[in-house]
Design a protein around this nucleic acid. Structure first.
Lengths: 194, 194
DNA sequence: ATTTGACTAAAAAACATAATTGGTCAAATA
DNA sequence: TATTTGACCAATTATGTTTTTTAGTCAAAT
């Protein structure tokens, strides 16, 4: 069996347990036992528990990024793309429970070890939103005075909303308003016909 | 010495300690000692520590409400009022450290005892913002299709932002973007001249 | 090159004990 | 009568100790 197979098995097993029990309540031993291996082998592929969690998180966010990229690269109008991007982001991250754990960690000022993956995702989002706005401006669909400003606002909103949404279980309560907010944001950027 | 004087002294002392050390790190004994009284007297004026904290919080938020009411009742244009309201709210709540404690409590799903004061404040805000929008609409300054929707959005934003702003010390980081966001919101409501 | 399992050090859990603190109340004070 | 006191108690919290669990290592086996 080539090593990449085992590595995948490990990540799969780790994902299963981290997703269900969280970082601290998951033991390296159960991750190993689950794939009928000795604990030691985990350390052949990963330096530490933290690094393994990082990999799990990275793959979780990678899937989200992939889905979002699809939307960004679609042929829809920029306004539709922007709206879709924001809404889909919400839905996908709502299910990304390991990402939620990093939010909680952030609050407790613990787990600095996930900073890199977090930063990578934020940068990805900044790039995507910037590109959407640039494209919209170029094609004459959007009226954005200052792209950077608008991106900042968007990022601030979507990252602030994560706390109540994902950690305080207010997803259902906020969902509709979030849609309205996004509509408002988008309408604000619309070229005024006439 | 009439009882209202002593009650005020107690609240004053409690404010001092709760503001500095927070609810759980403040003892009833030190609140009493600070005004050269026996601990027992606190229970003559307040049923419990929780009730005393409630009073402190109530007064803290009462001051904020008073300042905000001034803005709402001013003679400025509705757009200016709305903007001023949002910005001043931020500045005042930034300094309201006992209010911050209730946010933290909310996160830990503890301290249900402050729910009433919290709800009262939220209701106050809903009323004020609704009135601002109604007035602006009536006087022809604002173009608000659905007042209720707009109020919901505003409330969602300002309450979501509190976590990073007040509990994660991102006030400085977010301040400018917050101003832009408010400007955007307000501009969105402007009547399109021409 | 990969896997094992016994091993260790360190962290966490469990337990016991001491100290602190919220809250009460009969008596004192004014 | 209205207010204040301080001794008192129950319960929570802090502290110290022991036990268990667990992340991480490594020499030997595959």
């Amino acid at each position: 069996m080539p090593d990449i197979e085992v590595r995948n098995l490990i990540v799969e097993s780790a994902t299963k347990y981290f997703s269900k029990y969280g970082f601290s309540k998951t033991t390296m031993d159960e991750i190993a036992k689950n794939i009928h291996k000795a604990k030691g082998v985990l350390y052949y592929y990963f330096k530490s528990k933290e690094e393994l969690f990082n990999e799990v998180l990275k793959q979780e966010l990678s899937k989200v990024k992939k889905e979002l990229k699809k939307i960004v690269d679609s042929d829809d109008d920029t306004l539709i793309i922007l709206k879709e991007y924001m809404l889909t982001r919400l839905k996908l991250l709502h299910k990304a429970v390991n990402y939620h754990e990093t939010l909680r960690a952030d609050f407790f000022e613990k787990y600095y070890f996930v900073k890199d993956v977090r930063d990578d995702f934020t940068e990805f989002e900044r790039t995507q939103i910037t590109n959407i706005l640039k494209k919209g401006k170029k094609e004459g669909y959007l009226n954005v005075k200052n792209i950077n400003s608008t991106v900042n606002i968007a990022i601030m909103i979507i990252s602030s909303i994560e706390f109540p949404l994902f950690l305080q279980n207010k997803y259902a309560e906020y969902e509709n308003t979030m849609e309205e907010l996004i509509s408002m944001l988008v309408n604000n950027l619309k070229i005024q016909k006439k």
